[in-house]
Simulated scan of single mutants.
Amino acid sequence: MADIISPLPGIFYRKPGPDKEPYVNEGDPVVAGQTIGVVEIMKQFTEVRSDVAGTLARFSVEDAGTVNPGDVIATVDEG
């Protein structure tokens, strides 16, 4: 298991826009470098990417949830 950590404080979004599909859902395969969501702070959006390949096991933050630097956003089951 590998945790995906928030790089900065802000609001975490799982989708690129309100009427768009999520970047990834729990149970979906992910590849290293894949975007799983974005963190917004003062209208600036920073992509959050997985460092490892595997299956997205779970999100630890709800969509539109507040995050701080170092918070676990999601967990990937490697392999």
Rank of each mutant, 00 (worst) to 15 (best):
Asp63Tyr: 08
Asp77Glu: 15
Gly65Ser: 07
Lys43Asp: 00
Arg58Thr: 10
Val31Gln: 13
Ile73Glu: 12
Gly17Cys: 05
Ala74Glu: 04
Ile41Lys: 13
Gln34Asp: 11
Val61Trp: 00
Ile4Arg: 11
Ala57Val: 06
Ala32Val: 09
Val52Ile: 12
Val67Pro: 02
Gly17Trp: 02
Val67Leu: 05
Thr55Val: 15
Lys43Trp: 00
Ser50Gly: 08
Gly79Asp: 12
Thr75Ile: 15
Pro7Tyr: 06
Glu26Asn: 07
Tyr23His: 12
Ile5Asn: 13
Asp63Glu: 06
Gln34Cys: 10
Asp51Trp: 01
Pro18Asn: 05
Leu8Trp: 01
Phe45Gly: 04
Pro16Tyr: 00
Asp63Thr: 07
Gly54Asp: 07
Val38Arg: 11
Gly27Val: 11
Tyr13Gln: 10
Asp71Lys: 09
Arg49Met: 08
Asp77Ala: 15
Lys15Glu: 08
Ala32Lys: 13
Asp71Ser: 06
Ile5Leu: 12
Gly79Arg: 14
Gly27Asn: 11
Val30Pro: 03
Ala2His: 11
Ser60Thr: 13
Asp71Val: 05
Ile36Pro: 09
Thr55Trp: 04
Pro7Arg: 12
Val30Gln: 05
Asn25Gln: 14
Ala2Asn: 13
Val30Leu: 03
Ile36Glu: 08
Phe12Arg: 13
Lys43Gly: 01
Glu40Gln: 11
Val67Ser: 09
Asn25Pro: 03
Lys15Phe: 01
Glu78Lys: 14
Ser6Trp: 02
Pro69Cys: 03
Asp3Glu: 14
Val30Trp: 00
Pro69Ala: 12
Ser6Gly: 05
Arg58Leu: 07
Lys20Trp: 02
Ala2Arg: 15
Gly79Cys: 08
Ile5Tyr: 11
Asn68Val: 06
Glu47Arg: 11
Ala57Ile: 03
Glu21Trp: 01
Gly79Gln: 10
Asn25Arg: 15
Asp28Pro: 06
Lys43Met: 02
Ile5Thr: 15
Glu40Asp: 01
Val52Arg: 11
Val52Cys: 11
Lys15Ser: 13
Thr66Tyr: 06
Asp77His: 15
Glu78Gln: 15
Lys20Gln: 14
Phe12Lys: 12
Gly10Pro: 10
Lys15Leu: 02
Tyr13Cys: 04
Val48Ala: 06
Gly17Val: 02
Asp19Cys: 03
Thr35Gly: 03
Val48Gln: 07
Asp19Leu: 13
Gln44His: 03
Arg49Ile: 12
Val72Gly: 11
Gly65Trp: 03
Ile4Gln: 09
Ile11His: 06
Glu40Cys: 09
Phe45Met: 14
Arg58Gln: 13
Thr66Trp: 01
Asn68Ala: 13
Arg14Pro: 02
Lys15Thr: 12
Ile11Cys: 06
Lys20Ile: 01
Gly79Leu: 09
Asp3Arg: 15
Arg49Gly: 03
Glu47Phe: 00
Phe59Ala: 10
Lys15Gly: 05
Asp28Thr: 07
